[in-house]
Design a protein around this nucleic acid. Sequence first.
DNA 1: AAATTGTGTTCAAAATAATGAACATAAGTT
DNA 2: AACTTATGTTCATTATTTTGAACACAATTT
Lengths: 212, 212
Amino acid sequence: MQQKKEASSSSSFARDAFAGQNTSDRPPLVGKEIQRLRQEHQLTLDELASKSGVSKSILSQIERDHSNPTLSTIWRISQALKQPLVDMLSSGEEKPRFEHLKVNQTPVVSSTDGKFVLKILGTLGTVSTLQWYEFKAEEGGILESESHGSGSLENLTLVSGKLLVISGTESRELISGETLRFLTDSPHRLESLGPEPAHGFMVNLLNSNESF
Amino acid sequence: MQQKKEASSSSSFARDAFAGQNTSDRPPLVGKEIQRLRQEHQLTLDELASKSGVSKSILSQIERDHSNPTLSTIWRISQALKQPLVDMLSSGEEKPRFEHLKVNQTPVVSSTDGKFVLKILGTLGTVSTLQWYEFKAEEGGILESESHGSGSLENLTLVSGKLLVISGTESRELISGETLRFLTDSPHRLESLGPEPAHGFMVNLLNSNESF
DNA sequence: AAATTGTGTTCAAAATAATGAACATAAGTT
DNA sequence: AACTTATGTTCATTATTTTGAACACAATTT
């Protein structure tokens, strides 16, 4: 999908660039916010330009939402204004109270034989310091994992079924209702022992420097 | 006329584009994170391209941090991956540090009428920055909670049953398999709508600066 | 093995973001 | 008023992103 070239590029961005998107959902318009911050700091375009290394002309356009800035440009501006980049981008966005993930929107990972199914429910910290899952596994279903790195911890609660957990050289058998937490700084493996399907939850902490 | 093609200046972006900036602080490199999310969703570059409207070739380059994406590009990608734009960008920034992990004794809390049962599966952080639970509630079971403080997020996944969630003045109805993330900076309430018992899993982040 | 399919990477061309200089406008000075 | 000064906008040009097609490679199928 291609945007039509405008005779003059003057005002193409703000109105047309995202035509075809939901009007309610558009990329954040940072212009207002940047202008507000600049004025709050009592800076002129020239001053902000030299502080940030971004040219005055593009600053002017960005403030009026006539340009679609590059990541590095926004970042340099945010640095000059001592504003966390993230705050700058979220300022325009109204933040919803709820985020509702329908069934089919939950990312799912399954073992090759399809017997072990892992639903990724959420993550915290984009470096993946925390993730949580729901899993279901028929008898014989196996989930093999590599090491999650030193200091990683897995917290597993079994709701129903029977599960064999092997981490490093040790192993444990879990029955319904039990919780196990173990280090995952080495390859590990979960196996549903059946006969009824194993079902449970898992919270993984990556690189936490924690111990039991 | 472009004399500097990507082939000849193969690594121009990653090294040179931000030369002159603090070496310790550079714009977030979103490549790794985007790739992680794409693979988590089990999408190929082609699929993500058509979902997001961003060409496959630029996706490939962005994932390898060979391009400096435009705000609208990052935004379209974040939409397709159902990932809050802000989270995607904060990957380079400082990650939350967790401190002490307390012994887990799986205490159980129930509502006065005993219809809503909450099992505390784990807690992390001295100030209780993270807690996770399993809950079961018969029809009519209600859990009322005070505000958990500003910036608090509740992540609730319903395994079975029907659940009404009210936070502040808004409410949502969840059916089995769905996940809801919501702010808990004001009093909120969960109610099992039945007829079958509600069963699910909850992860609470206190004072996280995450937003949607 | 050959052909096909699936996936990611590179290429030339097109679109557009970024730059520096010129321009416009307003406010203050002489 | 005429002259500066300060600030933001527009212009022509350059630098980069983005695109679609072609390519390379691996895995699967015939």
